[in-house]
Amino acid sequence: MDYLTIIQILDSSLRLATPLLLTCLAGLFSERAGVVDIGLEGKLLAAAFLSGAAAAVTGSIWIGLLAGVAGSLAFSMLHGLASITFKGDQLISGVALNFLAAGLTVVIGQSWFQLGGRTPSLSGDGRFEAWNLPFADAMSKIPVIGPAYDELISGHTTLTYLALLAVPLSWWVLYRSRFGLRLRAVGENPSAVDTAGISVVKLRYAALVIAGVLCGLAGTYLASLAAGFVKDMSAGRGYIALAALIFAKWRPWYALWATLLFGLLEAIGNRYQSIALGDFVIPVQFMQALPYILTVIILAGFVGKAIPPRASGQSYVKER
């Protein structure tokens, strides 16, 4: 394997990690506030569909982005209605939202476009353009650093850079802002937050709004990357993001590394159908299953223990 191949694999890792990272950060905000979000997958799918549809009709991915974020936000608010306002089971609500997205996107998509659940393919302004960072062409001639800069760092779309920026931003919001302190507190000990005179309900809804926006970005990225919406195109990425969240132990910087790792696994799986280690051949299915296997191992506590926010999964009931 030569240097350029490694750069190319890392480049596609970053490409594949982008939606995972955005979705993982969405789950991070939601779960840090005490709302478990199994519905990430559904939000991703709903956003991919609406952004793909809107971009196909208007020809602008930016209008697509707005539609995708709006759809994802609507799903987020439905999750809030069920699990915060009506104190329903957060897991069940999330499962329902995933099915709702899987069904509605195809039913509505067929009715709108008659393409068997697809949206018309996107081109030109209907997709995000790759950014060529300054001097990328000029630097590509320089050995070692050149190709790395040209292939790996330059040439991604707006949302990839936005996702990378979202990591320090999330860290700052969570650990350095008053809002973040309260948000983390509401996920650990909501009654203490309530006693301090801060609304638990409002904080949790705020977390779901952030999660909705981030999932909306991730879904739009998927639609833009694949040049249109295809049935079930999220393909379990919401669950992988959830796995990455556990892997990252609910921390923003770790979320970046975890999603990059899962992106790398997917990139290697895409490039090599099977990997031979001497006489033993690793089947492609093993590479596909590896993120899930790693998550189970992490969850089992054999490699460091993953402890979720203490109040996550519980509805907050005021004492009377």
């Binding site: 069920a82 699990s83 009506f86 099915f99 069904g103």
Partner: peptide, 15 residues
């Protein structure tokens, strides 16, 4: 699948 989702939502989460 939509009906299934709505049944789960209403009988489960929105009880």
């Amino acid at each position: 699948v939509v009906i299934q989702a709505l049944v789960i939502m209403f009988t489960g989460a929105l009880d």
